[in-house]
Design a protein around this nucleic acid. Structure first.
Length: 473
RNA sequence: GCGCCUCUAGCUCAAUUUGGCAGAGCAACGGACUCUUAAUCCGCAGGUUCUGGGUUCGAGUCCCAGGGGGCGCACCA
């Protein structure tokens, strides 16, 4: 009979802290503790038995004796993976291993399936991701990586709240998905007899919060983009968006530095991290450079919006960058940057002054024609996030949406749709506004030095398991 | 979506260059063992070799199709 509750156990970490250095090999503390966890290893030796018990905070050895332990035969009979609660005296064995000298134990759960090879764990990627519970127990470091993720998310919230930001939650199911260039997932709202879309960004609703008076607002939320799966892309991912009234993109770049370096310090203990065998120094302030400057550094070509379109297209061709027919100069320039330059920037560096045509929700640059006030912080060749001076003028916003519609006409289905609701909200008055987007999964990947997004998502997107082995109609 | 690679016991992996009885360690099961550390030792059992078709006297191995997985490319702002 499995009990309904199990009371009074002490975390292993506390037992180790209290007695680890206190006892000599063969020493006995005289103190009785209760611990609980999973039996990971079992070494039966006639009238003695040793087990390695693992729980959230650590591992400890259990030492059972036929002459002392209640239900000794039952203890010898445990399976690897069973959960038990165990009570006994804290001792050290002759070999010096801190142990609980077992008086009694209670079975708390039976393991009917194994947890992989006790030395090598499990390595089959399919099994690791589909049955993550096995991976978490069987493989070294997996738990720690997700613990790090949890710390990062907590740190991000704390850091923003410390600056007066308020967390809100906005809808996931929408009649129209906006705020980013991406294909949405479609679902069906039965009672409305209408197709709905899963959100691809939180931007438009958060901006409406600002118009409503939330001067500093953020959401850490799951967004969904109907794209392929790859080492850096999962169709659902977690994004931070934060908006700050009266601020511009330079302020927001500082905010990103504050969040990323602060999260790094909280989660890893410092702002200099090891990544891909190199060192990445996230200590603020980060270097700022224009897109034109970094393109020139990497490719040796001086390209900007002054360069005539045919010449830009020729440069793209020579650099092996594909462009879509009908792209304007800004789109070509951005494509060149993304293919040739961004992957080669180690950083961290803020790449600034993007062309207007690729940033439909961003305010025009205060002095550079054709550009918008947008900064992309790059670290280790990847975008960490985005910083914007947000577009606040409803008339300009309408024109940008119309330009997006034109893109859509020529077959670019990720282009945004007109959003009259959002324009009406802007017409009620949006103050000068800075905004950031920060991909939490990629931030965690960077801090955990993970090469695959699946290593930082507990349950990454996989094909449905039905259909395997052809057992589905 | 395209290309390359891959799939063998519950787990981790073997199975001559070039087709010849599908194996080991761990787990499980039975037993021995009073200080083990991946305990050790003895025994037992474990398989639609991803699925379907083909070539062959004979296929885990070669060929075709399908499925799962991996990597790369494409999509990504």
């Amino acid at each position: 009979m499995i009990p309904y509750r199990f009371d009074g156990h002490t975390p292993v970490k506390e037992v180790v802290a209290a007695y680890g250095d206190l006892l000599e090999a063969g020493g006995e503390s005289g103190d009785v503790v209760t611990v609980a966890g999973r039996v990971m290893l079992l070494r039966v030796q006639g009238k003695l038995a040793f087990a390695t018990l693992r729980e959230w905070t650590g591992s400890i050895q259990l030492f059972a004796l036929e002459t002392l332990t209640e239900d000794f035969p039952g203890f010898k009979d445990l399976n690897l993976g069973d959960w038990i609660g165990a009570t006994g005296e804290v001792v050290k064995t002759r070999r010096g291993e801190l142990s609980v000298k077992l008086r009694s134990f209670v079975l708390l759960a039976q393991a009917r399936h194994g947890f992989g090879d006790k030395w090598r764990g499990v390595s089959d990627p399919d099994l690791r991701y589909r049955q993550r519970e096995v991976d978490l127990w069987a493989n070294e470091g997996v738990r720690e990586r997700f613990l790090l993720r949890s710390k990062v998310v907590a740190a991000v919230r704390d850091l923003l709240e410390a600056r007066g930001f308020v967390e809100v939650e906005t809808p996931v199911l929408l009649p129209q998905a906006g705020g980013a260039n991406a294909k949405p997932f479609v679902t069906h709202f039965n009672s409305m007899h209408a197709d709905f879309y899963l959100r691809i960004a939180t931007e438009l609703y958060l901006k409406r919060c600002v118009i409503g008076g939330f001067e500093r607002v953020f959401e850490v939320g799951r967004v969904f983009r109907n794209e392929g799966i790859s080492p850096k892309y999962n169709p659902e991912f977690t994004m931070l968006e934060a908006y700050q009234a009266y601020a511009d993109y330079i302020d927001m770049a500082e905010l990103i530095e504050y969040i990323v370096s602060g999260a790094a310090a909280d989660a890893t203990g410092g702002t200099v991290i090891a990544l891909q065998g190199r060192e990445l120094d996230l200590t603020p302030p980060w270097r700022k450079a224009t897109m034109t400057e970094v393109i020139e550094e990497v490719t040796g070509r001086s390209l900007d919006l002054e360069v005539p379109l045919p010449e830009l297209c020729r440069a793209a061709d020579e650099l092996g960058v594909e462009i879509r027919p009908g792209d304007d100069g800004g789109q070509v320039l951005t494509a060149i940057y993304e293919k040739t330059t961004e992957p080669n920037l180690w950083g961290p560096v803020h790449v600034m002054d993007y062309p207007q045509s690729v940033s439909p929700l961003t305010r025009k640059h205060r002095s550079k024609p054709g550009c918008v006030e947008r900064i992309t912080p790059i670290a280790a060749g990847r975008e960490l996030g985005e910083c914007y001076s947000e577009l606040i003028d409803p008339d300009d916003q309408r024109e940008r949406f119309l330009a997006q519609l034109a893109d859509r006409e020529r077959g670019y289905d990720e282009a945004m749709a007109m959003d009259e609701d959002f324009i009406r909200a802007l017409e009620r008055g949006m103050p000068p506004l800075g905004g950031i987007g920060l991909g939490i999964d990629r931030l965690v990947m960077m801090l955990a030095d993970a090469s695959h997004i699946r290593e930082v998502l507990l349950f990454p997107a996989l094909r449905p398991e039905s259909g395997r082995d052809g057992d589905e109609p």
